[in-house]
Design a binder for these strands. Structure first.
Lengths: 202, 202, 202, 202
DNA sequence: TATGAATGAGTCTTCATTCAT
DNA sequence: AATGAATGAAGACTCATTCAT
């Protein structure tokens, strides 16, 4: 049996090629679903031959994983960056949250399909689920740290932050996709912010 | 898709056969995923021939849809039933919520995989997504109605209920899947209840 | 993962179909080599679709194995039959051997390619090698038994029979294929017979 | 096949490179089989690039052929060397045979797989088959010549030698692979030697 | 000469769907 | 209505060979 050695490309052109495969492959998968996207399409879309794909990736699944690793971070880290770069205190918490939500929505918009398919796969694929779990933990811990450094009440702080993140994540998700026509999203945003403020300060 | 003369079974035995296909098909799909379950398995598991499947369903996808229509309701209605059958008022709201959560967790446990796979598909399949959206709307409206009839503050009530449902849903999901070892779920449950109480009463 | 259940056909038409696949598949493999014969060709040659092949066989390799099991026996058993059906004694041994060789040659001719490819695979494929080893052992033991019942000297009888079989097998093989032009095969046949007679009677 | 300008290397380094490819390629092929060894592996094992292989060889098959030409001789010539360098006469024939067998076994052991795979290919590949046939003829003729020079009976000498070689070859092969546990190989060796002595002296 | 990235035809295998019975 | 054998298109992946550098 041939040893399936995956080339980790070092030359610039090769790196670009691998990136292209990840980008186009991930896009296609997000648009049409993992099982509805075949390797030939991915290769064609990336402007390479089918064969070359298997020099950079073990298999189709690998492309998805790498895509998630690459683009999922972009979707989740903005929130973190905002938090990190800002001084949070009880007085500006509301404002910071508003900014956070705005930013979160922006990144959601950046890759509608991506977010959709990634979330979907979380439920089926252990590797992907793990990736997200770790990401979430890291995010929660980071926010907790910031809050503690800013003098917020440490009681049940992990749980509070976790619930806050859930609320923001859901809010943004719905604003971008669900579009329940019977909902007023400005109102909902304010409710979320108030709820979080109360929660954190409780 | 031309409606290839799908027989809507009228005889008792036929109806039972169709039900069996839906039940076993849906179970398999939930366990192993839609793309990892083939029609032969479904037929075998349902105790029928492969051919007969296509007399009751247009295609494989149809089986899934009917499965969701039938069983997804069971997963989401408990909450509703509780709400409907109980008199809610500001004083017993906390207790009702507690009961709701308990019940919600139970139905999560009843069909872990189902819930997982269904949620996953929501993101890929428009038909399924629609089904869930409508379900959610119906659920929200029902709860809203109950609250209004019980004299709660009608201001932004739709949004408040929606956020409450999200919080409960997420809480239960995490309790069932025990995702975060670093979280205290009793604490979180109390936080959720308090948050909802504050929200609804605000 | 779907359970790859191989249908063991019971109906007449199905059995015939399986037989056809074995026959044509084996013929093609023998003619062109295992790696130079693809499943599409086998299916086409057998007059069936590619898909059906995998309802009767686990994989391509299976076809080969079944082919060998079926046709290799035909090639090797004639020798045995002759031996079994004849009364051998020191006086007619020479005659029996002559007849054996004639028959052996006939079956070699019946499936030139088969013999060729089978022998080839013996060296690569453990399963096939095992099959042949067992066949050889069985054949040797059968002949030994006959000789013992006929009152031949039991000393080292297994080894003697084994060498005899090798000589006959090689002789026939060369007569059918090698065709060393510089050899006189009538002479060689006589030499082989005399050698065996001496060996067995020694 | 158009001779795509295969460079016959003249410089020392080039020759070494070609030799390396033949050696490592042949070894891999013998170990894993021709169709289970790919050119990338061969190149890597030989410490060269994939591309360069096609400057020394027309195709993969070429590597095998050259490997056989080069190494098969080593496997078969020992027997010959012994014969050539020794004075054979009716009195020492037995001893010479014993030595021959010992030596033959040694070379079998040196490259178990090689012998196995080469023999296998004989049945599929005409070019290889021819090579072996010629080798056999040459070997037989050489031995015949020696025997004639040593005063042995020339009657049917080609056939006798041929059968002798077959017996030795088979004996050694079995001793090396220990195929039949129910056989006593010392006994068999003696039987073979006696048989050959009788044959040659007859 | 030499490299190793790139090609793409070819392979085995699966499976939704159809059809003869 | 029912069966399950049959179909064949489609998919993931491999690898001998070529080619830009």
């Amino acid at each position: 049996m041939a040893e399936n050695e995956i080339r980790e490309p070092v030359q610039k052109r090769s790196i670009e090629k691998k990136e292209k495969i990840i980008k186009h492959g991930f896009e296609l998968i997000c648009e049409k679903g993992y099982y509805n996207t075949n390797t030939a399409e991915i290769a064609k879309s990336a402007g390479v031959s089918t064969g070359i794909v298997y020099q950079y990736f073990n298999d189709k699944h690998d492309i998805l994983i790498e895509g998630i690793k690459k683009y999922a971070s972009r979707i989740f880290f903005p929130m973190l960056h905002i938090a990190k770069d800002t001084n949070i205190n009880p007085d500006n918490l509301e404002m910071v949250l508003k900014e956070m939500i705005d930013n979160f929505i922006k990144s959601h918009l950046l890759s509608k399909e991506a977010h959709s398919e990634i979330t979907a796969m979380t439920h089926t694929d252990e590797q992907i689920a793990d990736f997200f779990k770790n990401n979430e933990i890291y995010m929660t811990n980071s926010v907790v740290e910031i809050l503690l450094n800013s003098g917020f009440n440490p009681e049940n702080i992990h749980e509070k932050v976790h619930l806050s993140i859930i609320l923001i994540d859901n809010l943004c998700h719905e604003i971008v996709y669900h579009k329940h026509e019977e909902m007023n999203y400005e109102t909902m945003t304010n409710l979320v912010i108030n709820t979080i403020v109360n929660l954190i300060n409780s």
